[in-house]
């Protein structure tokens, strides 16, 4: 506790970096997963390769991916971009199936009605399909968010500073306090992300919180 109070600034700054490193890939991954999920839903032939293929990306060990990134991207080993890109890969891996499932959850009669009224394909996607897929996509996003918060810490092994640095530091000095603080800070961050996603989802789906027929 004393250690924590003495290092408030340091923990706060690590936490801020951690939050950015975890959330930027979440957004980038979502933006990539939406078109990929749409393709998987729209074209039967692409479904299996896309969903299984992107799903397999998640099996690549994170440490290996962090080390591979500089080779692929031509970045320095300490560049935070490595972490962002690697986590984007994981987010896509988790979300392509979710987006595809979310789009599949939109009732067919609603789609038929939309087309029959003369709503074009693009506008149908953004005004009907995507909004109705939000609850399913949001569930996947929550998993991806927590997963990102946890995986970011591994990057400490490469020397990229964030909450994971508290673990490496604690181990190196055989000192428990920073490790405990790091764990608690990670949990707090994951909870904040989760709460944020739940709140945004609620705001985006007001029709789900109304009563049944009077």
């Amino acid at each position: 506790m004393n250690w924590f109070l003495g290092h408030l600034d340091e923990v706060g700054s690590l936490m801020a970096t951690h939050a950015v490193l975890a959330s930027a890939p979440l957004l980038a991954g979502l933006l990539l997963a939406i078109p990929l999920g749409w393709l998987a839903r729209r074209y039967r032939l692409l479904r299996t390769p896309l969903i299984v293929g992107t799903g397999l990306l998640y099996t690549i060990p994170s440490l290996a991916l962090f080390i591979l990134m500089p080779l692929v991207l031509g970045t320095g080993i300490l560049d935070p971009l490595n972490v962002v890109v690697a986590l984007t890969v994981y987010t896509v891996a988790l979300l392509v199936r979710t987006v595809s499932d979310g789009l599949a959850s939109v009732p067919d009669d609603v789609l038929q009605a939309a087309s029959a009224m003369g709503i074009g394909r693009v506008s149908r996607f953004f005004k009907v399909e995507l909004p109705l897929a939000v609850p399913v996509i949001s569930a996947g996003l929550r998993v991806a968010a927590v997963s990102n918060v946890s995986i970011v810490s591994v990057a400490a092994l490469l020397g990229i500073a964030q909450l994971g640095s508290l673990f490496t530091d604690g181990f190196a000095r055989n000192y428990l306090d920073p490790i405990v603080v790091g764990i608690l800070a990670c949990i707090a961050l994951a909870l904040v992300f989760d709460l944020l996603i739940v709140t945004l989802t609620k705001a985006a789906t007001p029709w789900l919180r109304v009563g049944s027929p009077a």
């Binding site: 009669d109 609603v110 038929q112 009605a113 939309a114 009907v128 109705l132 029709w207």
Partner: peptide
């Protein structure tokens, strides 16, 4: 159509 096909989110 039979089921109405109303947009649930509107």
């Amino acid at each position: 159509i039979q089921s109405g096909g109303l947009f649930p989110h509107q």
